[in-house]
Amino acid sequence: MIRLFDLRKTYKTRHETLEVLKGITLTVPDRKFVMLLGESGSGKSTLANILGLLDTPTSGEYWLDEVPIHTLTSKARTDLRREKVSFVFQSFNLIPTMTARENIELPLGYRGVPKEERGERVEAVLREVGLSARAAHVPSELSGGEQQRIAIARALVVEPSLLIADEPTGNLDKSTTKAVMETLTEAGRGKTVFMITHNEELTAYADEVYALRAGLLA
């Protein structure tokens, strides 16, 4: 479960102080598909980075599965992120020199999963996203939709409890968006999925929808 209390994030530049999140209070139950709508610059990605433990809030409280994230050290946050959180990004963020299979295997390898188990889990997740036949291809040989499905497979292979998807369909056309959303909802079942988008047509896939305007939940 995610619980946020008066969460704020401020960026200081040389000339000004920019308050991106102005006090977010939110509770997201387990295993829900939550969608966050918002225009560019509304603070969506900042919130996603904080929820995904990539960034820290300036003030306020963030509880993830009853763990007070706002009190953790950087190392403890990294350990928890590795254990519980996965990401899917707008720009796929696959490593271009690695094949689809190697990209998916990467987070497992760094978690010390034995080689045989890694192979089995990668094959299983490739089947789940329907791309077993494309496993030996590098990202440049895959279409945008296929790259995003590989990125989803990479996020799911570590069996996270929280999946953060930051504009996962932002670079895709309409038909590919549908395929990616179906993969995300099917494969993400049983996990808390927190998806950010500015596409209101996608809200049909979500259990709960929130809107972020100028750093505040509407």
Partner: peptide, 8 residues
Amino acid sequence: ILYAVGLS
């Protein structure tokens, strides 16, 4: 990317 997939 490496940071996002869980590396310290």
